[in-house]
Design a protein around this nucleic acid. Structure first.
Lengths: 135, 135
DNA sequence: ATATCTGCAAATGGTTTGCGGAGGA
DNA sequence: TCCTCCGCAAACCATTTGCAGATAT
């Protein structure tokens, strides 16, 4: 099982499994801690190299919503996100895709538009109902 | 001329002028080089401190589209952007705002949504018509 | 067989910060 | 006056990378 000339190493498989097995849009550091439980001597450099390679080959998504740590999404199919400004959690949104926006923007701007990214910001349900939110 | 207890120093005024005087969504480094022409001994730390302060007080926008350098926008009113994947330039888009998306996303998710960010990606008109694009 | 990958550790580079002095209000 | 701000330089920290050995195919 490989992907376009890339080898499916134990490290790469485990990283992909961990990322596919969560909906929390984790950071490289969080993934590192998780994978370490299965491959104790894995290095953080390997985590980064594989996350970048997986993102380049379209198997995962890279999310840059802040200027600090990058987050990763095991679901590579197009969808929108919600970012809670209180706890920082990132949620998937079931909002339907809006491909007509690409057409409109293309006509207005004259640029060739391939895709768009849409992120919503606010306070998540969890933080709204709890005084001291976890995480 | 101040802003909520903040002092309007020569450095801060010049940084704001430079940023308001361009539509190129520059990086802190570019702003540094520009401001240095007027205040030769200004430090990069001052650039960052002021950009952060101006962003926090809503006078400018902070754009995090990549995991490398942050870009800044002298126009703080809500609008959408287009990022060219060939030359990296960031353009403003005249596309009308889509506030109904906030309503829809709020109903679907149950989170309180305050605003959204929408960015389009593709190849800009400049790069489409020129073989070797500048910048 | 061999090109890709890994662990290790050092380097990178954008951004932040502590400090003592300067300068707006 | 006094509190915020500045320049300077070091620190910070997420991410990248060079190298020599390991491993998937």
């Amino acid at each position: 099982m490989s992907f376009k000339g890339h080898r499916m190493t134990n490290q790469r498989r485990t990283i992909l499994e961990v990322l596919k097995g969560t909906t929390s849009h984790p950071t490289a550091d969080w993934i590192y801690d998780e994978v370490k439980q299965k491959i104790p001597n894995i290095s953080l450099g390997t985590i980064y190299r594989n996350l970048n390679l997986l993102a380049e080959s379209g198997q995962i998504l890279e999310l840059n919503y802040t200027n600090t740590q990058t987050r990763f999404d095991g679901n590579p199919s197009p969808h929108y996100h919600f970012i809670c400004q209180e706890c920082g959690r990132v949620y998937d949104l079931a909002l339907e895709l809006q491909p007509q926006l690409d057409m409109e923007a293309e006509q207005i701007s004259g640029h060739r538009i391939d895709f768009h990214r849409l992120e919503f910001y606010g306070i998540c349900q969890e933080c709204l109902t709890h005084d001291s939110p976890p995480n």
